[in-house]
């Protein structure tokens, strides 16, 4: 967004233009509060938070990748694989749960590194490399688990519970991962390099940024975030399931895009992604409360994704 646009418009108008997703979220919340008496209760809102948590964590990881102009289709599968590895190493292999958790996170990172190696050194398009990983990780999850759910160690399953009696831990984890994503993107060298690479990879390279190395870091982060999401999901269910999180990569990408990131790279914020994930969760929750059929919900969510990006595109065309 160029500053001369900001100079022209009133501060309020430019704030609205910059935070369209947030405005949409607020409008949605207000509308649902009026339409449904059950919506605006602490219990229900925390429930929405829990519903949003896994998608949001996956989406934070996907934000890194999308900012570099890439795409990661493997996050859902990697989430499932990481959770299966945790449960399997802790139960069948009998490792202590902290070690199992570390191994599980490492699996996520390794999946990301393999993606990045294929993309940076093998010159595969990110879509293809991560599509391959989507199949590989899902397959490995099924192989290791032999197709059946594995119980999570109790210590880890507490992640699915609450602090005190009301604050769901998945919501806390989501917020922490969101803060980490925001700090990485805004303050760290790899984060700033992601924007440069997504904005113009050649210019970044000719400015001395080691593009391949930064891509390794980017996809490794996405893998690590996917592993955390997988562990949170399995904890809520108290068991790791090989078919868990199937299709979640698309929700994650939708959240990132609704949050204002551009699939062509160079643009995106952790806060935007957070709002995008909340919009999806609020919408699903609200439609449930209003007894809209699950079939129609899919239609509505598809329309919302198209609208969000359309509004953003039109707004940008208007200013350039």
């Amino acid at each position: 967004m160029s500053s001369n646009v900001l100079a022209r418009r009133s501060p309020a108008a430019s704030w609205f233009a910059e935070n369209g997703a947030l405005v949409a979220l607020v409008v949605l919340v207000v509308a649902l509060s009026l339409l449904s008496a059950d919506f605006l209760s602490v219990t229900n809102l925390l429930n929405v938070g829990v519903q949003a948590a896994v998608t949001a964590i996956l989406a934070f990881g996907a934000t890194f990748v999308i900012v570099t102009g890439g795409i990661d289709l493997s996050v859902g599968s990697v989430a499932a694989l990481s959770a299966i590895v945790l449960a399997w190493t802790a139960t069948s292999a009998g490792l202590p749960w902290p070690v199992a958790t570390a191994v599980s996170l490492a699996v996520g990172v390794v999946c990301g590194l393999v993606n990045a190696a294929l993309i940076a050194y093998g010159k595969l398009p990110p879509f293809i490399a991560t599509l391959a990983m989507l199949g590989i990780a899902r397959g490995l999850a099924l192989v290791i688990s032999q197709g059946s759910p594995i119980a999570m160690p109790d210590a880890v399953s507490t992640l699915g519970g609450t602090f005190g009696d009301y604050l769901p831990i998945p919501v806390v984890v989501m917020v922490i991962m969101g803060l980490i994503a925001a700090v990485v993107l805004n303050r760290t060298y790899p984060g700033r390099a992601m924007y440069a690479i997504g904005g113009n990879e050649e210019a970044a390279r000719l400015s001395g940024i080691k593009v391949n190395r930064q891509k390794l870091i980017t996809y490794a982060l996405s893998g690590a975030f996917a592993a955390v999401a997988g562990i949170v999901l399995a904890s809520r269910l108290a068991s790791a399931q090989p078919q868990a999180a199937a299709g979640y990569e698309l929700d994650a990408i939708a959240a990132v895009v609704i949050g204002g990131a551009s699939l062509s790279g160079g643009k995106g914020r952790a806060l935007g992604t957070f709002v995008g994930a909340l919009i999806l969760a609020v919408l699903r929750n609200g439609l449930n409360l209003l007894s809209v059929s699950a079939f129609w919900q899919q239609v509505v969510i598809g329309v919302v994704i198209a609208l969000a990006v359309l509004v953003d595109t039109l707004r940008r065309r208007g200013t350039n």
Partner: peptide, 8 residues
């Protein structure tokens, strides 16, 4: 094409 990140 090579010198600038135009969107930044």
């Amino acid at each position: 094409g090579q010198g600038l990140v135009l969107g930044a």
